[in-house]
C-alpha cells in the first residue's frame, strides 16, 4: 500500500466522521422521516376515501334491501338481489381496503416519527439528554399512566354521578387506593413522548427538563425546560416566537404561571423558564409557534 492510498483512505475516513457529514446524515434521516410522514398522510387520505366509498355502498345496499321488501314482481326482485349481492361484495372490499390503509398509515407514521426522532437526536446530540417522556417524581404519581373510568366533567350543573370505589386503583405494592390522575381519564394509547410533529406538519419539536435539581418534573416548583425546534428536514428554526400554554383535560384550569421562552445557546434550541405545575395528572402542553416557515402549533402530553 503506498502512502498515497493511506492518505486518501484516512481522508475519506475523516470526511465520513466529520461533524458536517454527520449533520448532513441527520438531515437526511429527518428528510426520510418527513417523506415517510407525507406518505402516511397520503395513505390516511386514501383510507378516508375508501371509508367514504364503503359508506356510500352501505347506503345503496340499504336502499336496495328496502326496495326488495316493497317489490312484487319476480323480475325486479331478481335484479335487486343481484344488485345486493354485487354491493355486498363491494362493501367488503371497501371496508377491508379502508382498514388496511388505515393500518398502513399508522405503521408509516410510526416509522416516520422514529426517523424524525433519530435525526433530531443525532443533529442536536449535545442538547438532547432525555429522549424519553417527561416524568413526575414517582411519589406524587404512584399510578403512572393508569387511570380510572369516570366520565369527568368539572363544570357545574350537570354533574357526574358520584364516583364509586371501583374508580380508584392501587399501584403495585400499595394498599392505599390513591385517586388516580386527579380524576382524569387517560385515552388509550395516549402519546406521552417528548417529540412531536406540529399540527400543520411544518415543525418537529422536542421538549425536556433542564435538570437543575432532579430528573423529575417537580410539583409546585418553578423549573425550566429545553425546547428544540426544527423543520421536518432538519433545518434549525432559529427565529421562532413561542407562546407556551397548557391545561389539564377535564379540569378547567390552565397553568398557574406564564412561562417565558428565550432563544438558547444553539440554533433551534430554546429555553422555557417559569414552568410550574400545581397538580399531578395529565397535562396538555400546547406551543403556539410563529416562525419563518409559518405559524403552527405543537402539542405534548405530559403525565405527572
Amino acid at each position: 500500500m503506498t502512502w498515497r492510498v493511506v492518505v486518501a483512505l484516512s481522508f475519506t475516513a475523516l470526511t465520513l466522521l466529520s461533524p458536517s457529514r454527520l449533520v448532513a446524515q441527520a438531515h437526511n434521516v429527518m428528510s426520510q422521516g418527513h417523506h415517510k410522514l407525507l406518505e402516511a398522510d397520503s395513505t390516511a387520505k386514501q383510507a378516508r376515501e375508501a371509508i367514504k366509498q364503503s359508506n356510500k355502498v352501505r347506503k345503496a345496499l340499504g336502499r336496495y334491501r328496502y326496495e326488495l321488501s316493497q317489490s312484487d314482481t319476480a323480475e325486479a326482485q331478481s335484479t335487486l338481489r343481484q344488485a345486493i349481492s354485487d354491493h355486498t361484495l363491494q362493501l367488503h372490499h371497501w371496508e377491508a381496503q379502508g382498514l388496511k390503509l388505515r393500518q398502513d398509515s399508522a405503521v408509516q407514521k410510526t416509522e416516520s416519527l422514529k426517523l424524525l426522532r433519530a435525526g433530531m437526536i443525532a443533529n442536536w446530540s449535545s442538547w438532547i439528554s432525555q429522549p424519553g417522556p417527561l416524568r413526575g417524581a414517582e411519589l406524587t404519581s404512584p399510578l403512572d399512566n393508569r387511570s380510572h373510568n369516570s366520565p369527568q366533567r368539572s363544570v357545574h350543573r350537570n354533574m357526574p354521578t358520584p364516583r364509586s370505589d371501583t374508580e380508584l386503583q392501587s399501584a403495585e405494592g400499595m394498599s392505599l387506593q390513591v385517586s388516580a390522575l386527579a380524576g382524569q381519564q387517560l385515552p388509550e394509547g395516549l402519546d406521552t413522548g417528548s417529540f412531536s410533529v406540529s399540527r400543520q406538519r411544518k415543525i418537529f419539536a422536542h421538549i425536556e427538563l433542564i435538570q437543575d435539581r432532579s430528573q423529575f418534573v417537580p410539583i409546585n416548583q418553578l423549573h425550566r425546560w429545553r425546547l428544540i425546534l426544527s423543520s421536518l428536514d432538519g433545518e434549525a428554526i432559529t427565529d421562532g416566537q413561542v407562546r407556551f400554554g397548557g391545561h389539564m383535560p377535564g379540569h378547567v384550569h390552565g397553568l398557574p404561571t406564564q412561562p417565558i421562552i428565550e432563544a438558547g445557546s444553539a440554533p433551534g434550541v430554546y429555553e422555557i423558564s417559569g414552568v410550574k405545575f400545581q397538580m399531578g395528572g395529565w397535562w396538555v402542553i400546547e406551543l403556539e409557534l410563529e416562525t419563518s416557515v409559518g405559524s403552527d402549533s405543537v402539542r405534548f402530553n405530559v403525565v405527572l
Binding site: D165, L168, L176, V178, N220
Partner: peptide, 22 residues
C-alpha cells in the same frame, strides 16, 4: 385512606404542609 384516595383532598392539599399554595 379517604384523604389520599376517594375524597381526592391530596390533589391540592399535598406536601408536608398539605397545600400547593395555588
Amino acid at each position: 385512606r379517604l384523604f389520599v384516595g376517594k375524597a381526592r383532598c391530596a390533589s391540592c392539599h399535598n406536601g408536608p404542609l398539605f397545600t400547593n399554595s395555588e
